[in-house]
Simulated assay, not measured.
Amino acid sequence: MSRARAVGQRVPAPVIDIVLVSVAAVDVWLNMWEHTRLGLALAAVGCAALVFRRRFPLGVFLLTLPVALMQDVAVAVLVALFTLAERSRNRRLLAACVALAAVASSTPWPLAEVDRTMTLVFFVYGLATAAAPVLFGQLLQAQRDLARRLVDIEEAREHERALHAQAVLARERAQLAREMHDVVSHQVSLIAVRAGALQVAAKDADAKDAARTIRSLSVTTLDELRTMVTLLRASGGHATELTPQPTLADLRKLVESSGTRVELSGELPPTVGTPAQRALYRTVQEALTNVRKHAPGARACVELWQDGDDVGVTITNSPPTRPSLSLPGSQLGLVGLRERAEVLHGTLEAGPTKEGGYRARLRIPLSAD
């Protein structure tokens, strides 16, 4: 049944209509008892009406009843019954149509003396014949309903799986938020407190300045941690007010609080988009962090520049003046910057210089968004 239905879906409807009308016409011509003008006209109307069986199934069936008067088994009537059964859910109507078809096929034409026994036999035979396409049409209708029901069930299961995945993600985010709040935030708070105490107690100017920088960075980190914890606890279920993202206007403050001797030069046009400004800021932030970690005592130069339709920043640092400490790192900072640059259709180049320092260069289109 499914194979026949698939074939029916591939063949255009007009082709099917032409074939059915042709088969019904040939059936009438070969099996009609008497080829009178009236009989031929009624048969022609009944066969031609099959073209409209999809839009007017009941009307087409009624138009094919005269064909059933003229022969025992009429293709036109069976096709009309099948179409009506495929589209109608009114069981009483279908039963009445089966009875009408059986009566039409068992009634002698032209009307003459009626043999009750033979008429009853023909009626039972016509009843069984007319019931077959109705049952087949109802079966096809039930199959379509079942297919739609299976699709609805599958969609409901997909939705249930999505909800389950969201619930699992929400629990994981909530657990991560608790860990960040209870462990990381606590430790950063201790760093800020110790740095504040060192700033007050230290007598050396360099030590005071270093303690002030540590305390400032710790406070900033705490603010960012609180924002991240808030976002994680929201679990994507409700809108959460986001902390304003950094732009080029915040670059000088970043340089001054970096704890490194940095020279900032160059300017960029005010038409630089917000995503591009954020990428430039994050690149400088990561580069200066790497200078502090891997090149203690080095000087850094941050240069903003524009080259035609591209803008960018170059961060260059000198060789370290003292050995670097072994600090934990994810080794993914530059990888993340390259991915950010690729999203904006830009490039990031990073590598050591001939003088023993390091250089990172970001280039992105001015119109990046």
Rank of each mutant, 00 (worst) to 15 (best):
R55D: 14
R89I: 06
C47K: 00
V291W: 00
R37W: 09
P352C: 10
A131V: 03
E179T: 05
R261I: 06
R173L: 14
V77A: 14
L100V: 05
R299F: 04
A85M: 08
A287M: 04
E172W: 06
T119H: 10
A80S: 12
H181G: 12
L169E: 09
A210W: 00
T347H: 08
A162D: 07
L50Y: 03
P108C: 13
L362K: 00
V291P: 01
G356T: 03
E86A: 15
H345Q: 14
A177V: 06
Q331C: 14
Y358H: 08
A341D: 12
R233F: 03
R282A: 15
M180E: 03
R37P: 14
A4I: 13
K354H: 11
V134Q: 06
E158G: 10
L40T: 05
A287F: 01
E349A: 14
M228G: 11
Y125K: 13
D145H: 08
D72L: 15
L42Q: 07
L63N: 03
V124F: 10
G8H: 06
L264F: 02
L334F: 08
R161L: 15
T213M: 13
A95E: 04
R54W: 09
V60L: 02
R149Y: 14
K253S: 14
G308Q: 06
R363S: 04
D115Y: 07
L190E: 09
R171F: 12
G59W: 04
N290Y: 02
S105N: 10
E86G: 14
T240S: 10
G196Y: 02
T230M: 11
A368K: 02
R233Y: 03
V168E: 15
V77P: 02
S326E: 08
T129H: 03
L327Y: 01
N31L: 15
T243P: 08
L150I: 08
R55K: 07
A6D: 08
F122L: 15
L242P: 02
R363G: 00
L42S: 12
Y281G: 00
R178L: 13
D152N: 12
P365N: 04
E303G: 03
T243S: 12
E256Q: 07
R278Q: 13
S330R: 00
R157H: 12
L139S: 12
L146E: 13
E339F: 09
L198R: 04
V114A: 13
R171W: 10
T274Y: 02
L30V: 09
R278F: 13
S2A: 15
R87G: 09
C97Y: 03
A132Q: 05
P296N: 02
L42H: 06
L63V: 01
L40E: 07
S326Q: 06
E160D: 12
W33H: 11
S330E: 08
E154Y: 04
L280I: 13
S2M: 11
A85P: 11
L58T: 00
R37Y: 08
D309Y: 02
F61H: 01
Q175M: 12
